[in-house]
Amino acid sequence: MAKFIERSAHQHASDRARVFMAAGSDQKQKEKAKGGGDSGPEGGSGSSKKIAKKGEEIKEDMDSLLDEIDSVLEENAEEFVKNYVQRGGE
């Protein structure tokens, strides 16, 4: 039991780092959505390249999330869903 707690406490540090990184990239996305900082909405081709790059990153981010779902999702979903029966409670 203690082991589990320690492990998740340790995980916590790296989780926080991830949260921090994700928050940072969110912020950048928002800036981009507002018109990409100094270059403004009519910014040159450099800016649209940046936007395209950002779009790629968001897509990659989403792809990796969906890949993970694919890898953790119960293999035999149909069987599992069918057999998932609970008694009413409360």
Partner: peptide, 10 residues
Amino acid sequence: NSDHKGNSYG
């Protein structure tokens, strides 16, 4: 809260 088969718990 539910098994999607009409059984709920709180």
